[in-house]
Amino acid sequence: MPEKTVTIASRSGLHARPAKIFVQAAARQSVPVRIRTGDRPPAPATSILAVLALGAEHGTAVTLEAEGPGADEALDALAALLARDLDTEEPADA
């Protein structure tokens, strides 16, 4: 299954605004994406509860996985998002 590992760049970790932005972006992808830390069982990236429960802080490596047509594009887009510091960016839609 295609997967991609990326380090959380946001200073507050995958929490608060970064978590919200990530989950909203995951919901826009054409394929279901899952997220995990280390060897723990993966969780749907569209669930903010599951994403928060990862406890992924700044510098934590997380792995994204997806399958089917468009999987690679979805992984690229979401990985690129996590590699940015979402805390410092202006809200695009506010």
Binding site: K20, V23, S47, I48, L49
Partner: peptide, 20 residues
């Protein structure tokens, strides 16, 4: 207040969470 708005939005997402 945008801060408060963001918190409420995240709360709304939790209430609508498929996992819940």
């Amino acid at each position: 207040d945008p801060e408060a708005g963001a918190i409420l939005e995240a709360q709304s997402m939790i209430a609508a969470d498929p996992g819940l």
